[in-house]
Amino acid sequence: MPETSFEPRVVGFLCNWCSYAGANLAGTSRIQYAPNIRIVRVPCSGRVDPLFVVKAFQAGADGVMVLGCHPGDCHYRDGNYYTRRRFTLMHAFLTFLGIDERRLKIDWVSAAEGRRFAEVVTEFTEQLSQMGPLSTQASVQVSAGGDQIRETVSL
């Protein structure tokens, strides 16, 4: 596939109270951004199980975003602090799996930051376009550890 026509597949887990509302604000403000993202609404970024991210990569995503409220502003008091810690570890784990850690983006977008949401999404999509698709070699490595993961994931 030529680099120029590559459209990365992006999955975004957005917390309901800040980032999902920020995405809505981008909409009501008619701010255009890269269309690659597919949004999964979760109550809190702390609801995002790291296995969801693995599952998304395993299933063919080229990049995953987890967006929550700014630290200190969590609707559920401190959920995003857990997100921050959890996904700091997750980055190291991705490297171990052979997935470039830049393919997982953790960021904070408030309900008032429609423009920022659009920027974050567009920047991440452009970055992924440059990086190209998640390589087959990486996928092999994912599926190598994948059996075990799949076991845990398929509840």
Partner: peptide
Amino acid sequence: KGCGLCVSACLGK
């Protein structure tokens, strides 16, 4: 309140 923090923290799922 339905935040789901416990869900992702639960080791046994």
